[in-house]
Amino acid sequence: MMKWSTLKIITGLVATAVVAVTAVSLSNEVVANPPVTGEIKVPQEVKQLLERACYDCHSNETNIRWYDKLPIASAIVSRDVQEGRKHFNFSTWDSLSANEQKSLLWEMYNMANAGRMPLPAYTAIHPQSKVSAADLTVLKNYLNTTIVSAINDTAKVQAAAKQRMQQVQQPQPGNLRVYYNGIQHMPDYHSWQVMSTTSRFDNGSMRIMYANAIAMEAIKRKEIHPFPDGAIIAKLVWEKLEDGEGNVRPGKFINIQYMVRDAQQFKDTDGWGYARFDGPALKPYGTATEPSKCASCHKAAATTGFVFDLPTKN
């Protein structure tokens, strides 16, 4: 009994001291809330979920609690909000293209489904922001309503025909394209082994993934944690052409994407260098910040060495 009360008194004193010290050092402004210019428009049920789970970091309506202003905590909060808004911001959603909006919503679902988002450290302090299985179903049902059928889409058929014409007429690019992180287009990809093929119903594309000899050997030996340096995966993306009979064939070539393994060179992006070249002209996509965006999404595939399209037994 005696022991218990002594402990209680000491703990109380320490706690009081902590509260006293921290109270005077609360940050006044952790992050500013700029104006909301073009907010996301989704059904009420979805909107409420986003507000509850995502808005603190992914909007200009960040709700700063008093404990977010504590030292250390305020620095973390400030960093997370800045990063979050940079990735996407529901308050300026209108500034994104329809395609960008769509792909972000699917990414959100998959990041939440993989337990990557909201950040576990954030939900530990803000338990009300946790995304439940029921919440995931709400989001999934909404996504399913956004799937557009492309059966006998003549615009897509013509786009493929046009690209074919141009490809026949124009010589292939003489200089190899180089991405912001130094990754080059690799014309040998076509001789690598096919790792997998995918059919994407979220964005109407179909893909072939090739693995170079080092990557293929690692996969065969199931030694992919981590993948060895020198492993390369190339992903080719085409638009789907559907005939209404269930037959889907590749139409227009959209892009080629690379994952190049070098634990040292690409240590900021989990050891993988990411690159994407668009269209037959292989135009480097986006800006220099693109590889880090790729890496953040690929965290959802950490269990398969950050590679989404590894064939596994379900």
């Binding site: 082994q193 037959n247 064939r249 269990t303």
Partner: peptide, 30 residues
């Protein structure tokens, strides 16, 4: 970046395509 020790169920490669090149691919939804 650590991965739980969960057993990975990577599918065995049933078809070694080395020496061949891809012409096209397709999907039959039905």
């Amino acid at each position: 970046n650590e991965v739980s020790g969960k057993e990975l169920n990577i599918r065995e490669y049933a078809f070694n395509d080395s020496g061949l090149q891809v012409i096209t691919h397709w999907i039959n939804e039905k």
